[in-house]
Amino acid sequence: MAGANVVRIGIMSFAHMHAHGYASCLQKLPNVEFVGIADDDRSRAEQMANHYGVRAFDSYEQMLASDIDAVIVTSENANHRRHVAMAAQSEKHVLCEKPLATTKKDAEAIVEVVRRSKIKFMMAFPCRFHPAFKRLRETVDSGDLGKILAMKGTNQGQCPGGWFTDTKLAGGGAVIDHTVHLADLMRVLTKAEPARVYAEIDNHIFRGDFDDTGIITVEFTNKVFATIDSSWSRPKTYPFWGNVNLEVIGTEGVARMEMFAQKIDLYSDKTGRHTYEYWGDDVNLALIDSFARSIAQDSPVEITGEDGLRALEVALAAYESSKLHEPIDLLN
């Protein structure tokens, strides 16, 4: 199985459900080997390892001391810093789940740890790899839309529950969970940095001690303005987990991307549900493939820790703005 260019990867923690998506990609990709799983919860590590037919390590230390090349960190947001630091110390490359961290301090510490190490660190922003986004990016870069004036994005979803609503572990609720995807895509399209953030955020869907609703306005250094809806506003009966939609308004035209529009409508008396059955590309495959290639070829990663930090700053500023009812300047 193991060849010269095969990258050996382990998963640190199955706390984040995206670990499942990554695990199945690790099994499918020819240029990686899915070695094993370590988890704070030893029984979860064993259960998942059994499920995927890989090794369950006793501890993170044991996995990091093994001959793996890299890890995917899918722990709770607040634990990313600790886990990335451990991996860096063991000189294992890292693919880190978003958001990068729960505080700016932790995010900057991750960027610094990576800078001082020899490891490759990649931020898991899989939306960048969707063919619809790639085409949108090409369209914008070709100048067909003219000059970009504004953007409108939504990353609305169902509430994932679990630790995602524990603000100590997640760093917040819907806004920290969802804002970063679109903030990142918008940075890529405009080739500019977020300069000013305003937000209205609240908790009126679930009335919990976490935010479930957020409308965030971002102004970029090149004066492009945009909004991001990062609410957990899809009800339990919604046919899909949510959406990633992005509209671009240019001087010469407009473009609309609905990332998960490639779907079949399924109406099932078995489940009593209507569901969207997505048939488009699996963005995680391209994400992990990119990560593995940059390791195998010793080339720069496509999405850096700084990218993760810039996107996180938008979410953190949104919380501050919503509290103060005023816009927050990011670049001062």
């Binding site: 004036l149 504004a150 409108k152 305003y198 209205e200 409308i215 306005t217 102004e219 303005f225 945009a226 909004t227 308004i249 001087t251 816009p327």
Partner: peptide, 19 residues
Amino acid sequence: YARGLYESNIPLTDYALVT
């Protein structure tokens, strides 16, 4: 709160996002 092109003077183009 609103952002828009009201004062941008782009001929026959206007756009606004209002919260």
